[in-house]
Amino acid sequence: MSDHSHSTEAHKHSPQEVSKHVKIYIGVFLALLVGTVVTVGLNAVHFDSIKLTVAIALFVAVIKASLVACYFMHLISEKKMIYVILGFTAFFFVGLMFITLSAYADLPANTVTH
């Protein structure tokens, strides 16, 4: 299972490029911390509508998750094959969640489900 690549072939980025990336990473890190504080802070406010509370919490979570996925996991500039794999996954993930939930929503009135 060995491979004959040598350090000279190793794929390295230029120092300038890397230091640019590092700045991005730190920025994302700070954004994530802020996001966490925002989520917790907003939660302490206790809006009257539970829907609004859920929507805001999930909205912030989605933003944080996208930051992690795009920058830490480099999805912002990945190869096509990875997008294809994740595209499939997203489709089935949505199918699983959405159809199951709709199946519950569509149960005849007065069905006891729990």
Binding site: S7, E9, H11, N43, L58, A61, K64, V68, A69, M73
Partner: peptide
């Protein structure tokens, strides 16, 4: 084999970020 070593670090990192990502949803 430095390139392969870096790959390992990257791949384990990807897993780690995923674990972080799950927590980002879990927490709220």
């Amino acid at each position: 084999d430095p390139q392969r070593y870096m790959n390992r670090v990257e791949v384990s990192g990807l897993f780690w970020h995923f674990v972080d990502l799950v927590w980002i949803f879990l927490f709220p």
